[in-house]
Amino acid sequence: MATLLIVHHTPSPNCQAMFEAVVSGATAPGIEDVRVVRRSALSATASDVLEADAYLLGTPANLGYISGALKHFLDQVYYPCLDETRGRPFGYYVHGGNDVTGAVRAVEAITTGLGWRRAADAVTVTGEPSKDDLQACWELGAVLAAGLME
């Protein structure tokens, strides 16, 4: 059974809504033989990353960058997972109050360094997520999970 690891930092109701939509998509009826593991960014480990087949990252944009929690996670797993996870699929979502540019740039740079392959378009939202934004999050989760079905 394949594993999708969702690593998130969810400090606000807006981030929580996006996270819940991603999980709903990843666990939707029709998604079979895919285990979805959810970890907060401060509790996820290199072992979690090594045991997963794909990754979905979620973060707020804080002060023009990814959250400190997600940065800490990525710093902790970078070298232990660098060679073993190269080429694995990933996706991500970012929420910001008014700008997510720096956070998007950070996720893209770090995952490029890891050699991960983006398997779906990123979902970026500023302000309160709309119904369409939450649908895009649902689709992000579904696409990543469906890509792991055998």
Rank of each mutant, 00 (worst) to 15 (best):
Thr85Glu: 06
Val49Ala: 15
Ala54Tyr: 07
Ala26Met: 08
Gly115Glu: 01
Ala122Pro: 14
Glu84Asn: 15
Leu114Thr: 06
Gly115Gln: 02
Ala21Tyr: 03
Val23Cys: 10
Asn14Phe: 12
Tyr92Ser: 02
Gly115Phe: 02
Leu148Asp: 09
Asp132Glu: 14
Ala61Arg: 04
Asp48Phe: 13
Tyr65Asp: 13
Tyr93Leu: 02
Gly25Pro: 10
Val7Ile: 13
Val49Pro: 02
His95Trp: 15
Gly58Lys: 01
Ile6Ser: 08
Tyr93Glu: 06
Val123Trp: 11
Val123Ala: 09
Gly87Leu: 12
Gly68Met: 12
Leu50Ile: 02
Trp138Cys: 04
Ser67Arg: 08
Tyr55Arg: 15
Leu42Cys: 01
Ser47Ala: 14
Val36Cys: 11
Val104Asp: 14
Glu139Pro: 04
Glu32Phe: 11
Glu20Cys: 01
Ala136Ser: 13
Gly87Asn: 13
Thr3Leu: 10
Trp116Asn: 00
Thr59Met: 05
Ala69Pro: 02
Thr124Met: 10
Trp138Asn: 03
His9Leu: 04
Trp138Leu: 07
Leu140Phe: 06
Arg38Trp: 04
Thr10Gly: 07
Gly115Met: 02
Gly96Ser: 10
Pro13Asn: 12
Ala46Leu: 04
Val49Met: 15
Ala142Thr: 01
Ser43Leu: 08
Ile6His: 07
Gly115Asp: 00
Gly87Trp: 11
Ser67Gly: 11
Asn62Phe: 01
Arg38Tyr: 03
Val123Gly: 04
Val49Phe: 14
Ala46Ile: 06
Leu114Glu: 07
Pro129Tyr: 06
Trp138Ala: 03
Glu108Lys: 13
Gln135Val: 06
Ala142Leu: 07
Asp53Glu: 08
Ser47Cys: 05
Leu63Ser: 12
Thr124Lys: 08
Leu57Tyr: 12
Ile66Asp: 00
Phe73Glu: 05
Ser130Ile: 00
Ala2Trp: 10
Ala17Trp: 04
Gly30Glu: 03
Val104Lys: 15
Gln76Trp: 01
Phe90Trp: 09
Ser43Asp: 09
Asp75Ala: 11
Ala120Phe: 10
Ala2Pro: 13
Ala17Asn: 07
Arg105Asn: 11
Arg118Thr: 08
Phe90Arg: 05
Leu114His: 08
Arg105Ile: 00
Pro60Trp: 07
Val22Cys: 08
Val22Phe: 01
Leu140Val: 01
Tyr65Lys: 10
Val49Gly: 05
Ala54Glu: 12
His8Val: 13
Glu128Asn: 05
Pro80Leu: 01
Gly58Ser: 04
Gly87His: 12
Val107Asn: 04
Tyr78Trp: 13
Gln135Cys: 07
Tyr55Glu: 11
Gly25Lys: 06
Arg38Leu: 15
Ser24Pro: 03
Val100Arg: 03
Ala120Leu: 09
Asp133Val: 00
Gln16Leu: 09
Thr59Asn: 10
Thr85Trp: 02
Arg117His: 13
Pro13Val: 09
His8Phe: 12
Leu4Cys: 03
Glu84Ile: 02
Gly141Val: 00
Thr3Glu: 14
Ser67Trp: 12
Ala21Asn: 06
Gly97Trp: 09
Arg105His: 13
Tyr65Val: 01
Leu144Ile: 06
Met18Asn: 00
Met18His: 06
Asp121Thr: 06
